[in-house]
Design a binder for these strands. Structure first.
Lengths: 362, 362
DNA sequence: TGGCCTTGCAGAAACGTGCCTGTCAATGCG
DNA sequence: CGCATTGACAGGCACGTTTCTGCAAGGCCA
């Protein structure tokens, strides 16, 4: 009664604590906590009264105190690999943006928020945030951060099959090898005699699996491999590599590019050498970008379905956090999708001068 | 002495607390805290000893407890507007990705981490995370989240001039009106007689300012406005709007598109109507994407410099959080940059058949 | 030798919750 | 009427830090 609504000591003047609510409502702290959290056995009248008083005071429970008490923060880490000082590379923009968007939505729907944490962060930042678990995108072979998180007992779910013996809780990935084989078959069906590859010099799993699948395919069908590798994180290098590939004496008549900008890179290089697409050169690239629906000609793309991956990864992680014996498998393979457009069809289904009024794709 | 290294009660078995470190090192809790945080007056020998013991036990301080005690969490919110259920729209991908990347780097360098929080989040998520401050991207007129954050006394810095009388701590923005006027002058200099605009139906500040600047320019030079507005968050609608714009009886001979995909949309529409770019139609669009360096022809783009914006926003916010009487202005205008390419030059400086070996742009 | 300052550390009070335990009245039952 | 049971709340401890206050030991000076 004699206690004022403001907290007794030098507490933040703007914010009311649970004590203030209890005092204002004329009940105890326990009753306030139970009423707001829907626990305990209280008559509805008391519950409503407490909630009303809390609203009137603008009471917001302290997230830090709740986290300290319950051990759950409601925060999920989104760990991205870094190149140089910057998180995630330029070529992964569209993929990462879509994946992060889906992951954010999925987390939000279950009451969690996402924290962006580059894998090479300063250690003090990592230990300064209380995480319930982490999503790791494409963990590298010996990522020290991931193994430490696992050692702390935190659930870790990775986007991309973990390299080596990294002990993640679960993972989600595409079947990159099957996707590459599909594309190569698709190009061969369209009449390609010699298929080239635009690949990367990095050691990540995606690049590695895709390249080795290409090499095995070449061996199977008896074609000499024709490929150029370049550092994918350099936005300029792709154009140069595409140019080199088409300048070779054993110039391919079809190319698959592993990275997002390879489509425009290859189109530009083809123009420089006077090659018509698709008549002289078939093109497919892996991309989530919609620009390839409107290029000249439209380019066939492989989508890795980042939205499905982002959603699945978060669901698995939250299942693990909440200890629900998940009925979902801990290793999920998300199917890819090939958007076949003019650039990979010898007989283009429509001429370029037809004036359609509606867009061709959603 | 008699106390084991594991915490006395039912604490998490895997993690050691500060008590365990103190017991193992034979010192008090205070000494451990001071030694690890570089405070107090301790001889170097004690400091080193404590740090060694802490390392050996794998001690990680509890972020929740530290936050509760100090009132600082080291977390910064990154609030994005949502369209439908999903955070940030498709057309903002490249801008948002670059901006978020720069913001993440800048925050990290100062010991902070970013939390992605859509503006329309469930309330319980917002109150479940202890934020030191928030970055708001393009706050809408009456965003309830922002005003509540301000009312709680949290620093709020917005990317984009706040609409109405939103009381943000600081903001960073481009001079969108000047940028539009620059582009229109640039197109007029290149010989455009009737300049059209591809704009949006949304009410955000960027669209509003850009459109009104266009209308004023038209009035000044005595040209009838020629524009099409479409819902920018719909990835298909842009292509349709571009088609409509070029199908009009008063077809423009130059177009500026406010959104990222408008360049390819306009190129595709021009092809459908047999218009040559830049001979029959000049094209400029606002985009952060590098694909426009390699389209046919390359398209002139306006960059809003999202990296500089992301960095500036975070610096201002952390300055406000740490109470440093910042010498930076609280209202910063970041200059835009126009990458002039073939699509907006009547006399293209290079022919399309020249075979350059090096990429033209970084 | 006593008073005072400095050094090196320990005790303990918060920070704001959640929850376990305890108290008191009302009720049911034989 | 005695006793167990249940509803409705209050008290208080614990979560793991940070930090304020304090205390003993030793050196310095008068």
């Amino acid at each position: 009664m004699s206690r004022a609504e403001t907290s007794r000591r030098g507490s933040r003047p703007g914010r009311a604590g649970i004590r203030d609510v209890a005092a204002a409502a004329g009940v105890s702290i326990t009753t306030v906590s139970d009423a707001l959290n829907g626990k305990g056995r209280l008559p509805d009248a008391t519950r409503r009264h407490v909630r009303e008083v809390a609203d009137r005071l603008g009471y917001r429970p302290s997230a830090a105190a709740r986290t300290l008490r319950t051990g759950k923060s409601g925060l999920i880490g989104l760990t991205v690999t870094t190149y140089g000082d910057e998180p995630f590379t330029f070529t992964e923009f569209a993929y990462f943006a879509e994946m992060a968007r889906a992951a954010t939505s999925a987390a939000l729907a279950r009451g969690y928020a996402l924290v962006i944490l580059p894998a090479t962060s300063r250690h003090d930042v990592w230990s300064n945030v209380a995480l319930d678990g982490t999503v790791v995108i494409d963990p590298s072979d010996q990522d020290p951060v991931v193994s430490e998180l696992v050692r702390q007992g935190l659930p870790v779910v990775s986007d991309g099959r973990p390299a080596g013996t990294l002990p993640v809780t679960a993972w989600v990935d595409n079947d990159h090898e099957a996707a590459v084989l599909d594309i190569l078959d698709h190009l061969a069906d369209a009449g390609a005699r010699r298929i080239g590859l635009l690949t990367g010099t990095t050691t990540d799993t995606y690049t590695h699996l895709s390249t080795s699948a290409y090499l095995r395919w070449c061996e199977r069908v008896g074609q000499d491999p024709v490929y150029e590798a370049y550092p994918a994180h350099d936005p300029c290098a792709g154009a140069v590599a595409a140019d080199r590939l088409l300048a070779r004496p054993d110039r391919p008549d079809a190319v698959y590019g592993l990275f997002d900008p390879n489509g425009t890179d290859l189109l530009a290089a083809a123009r420089r050498y006077g090659l018509r697409v698709p008549e002289d050169l078939l093109i497919v690239c892996c991309s989530e970008s919609t620009v390839y629906a409107n290029t000249e000609p439209p380019v066939t793309t492989l989508s890795l379905k980042p939205r499905r991956i982002g959603t699945a990864v978060v669901q698995l992680l939250i299942d693990a956090i909440e200890g629900a014996e998940s009925d979902r498998p801990v290793e999920q393979v998300i199917p890819t999708e090939l958007f076949v457009r003019t650039s990979s069809q010898r007989r283009p289904p429509r001429t370029t001068v037809s004036p359609p009024r509606t867009p061709e794709e959603n």
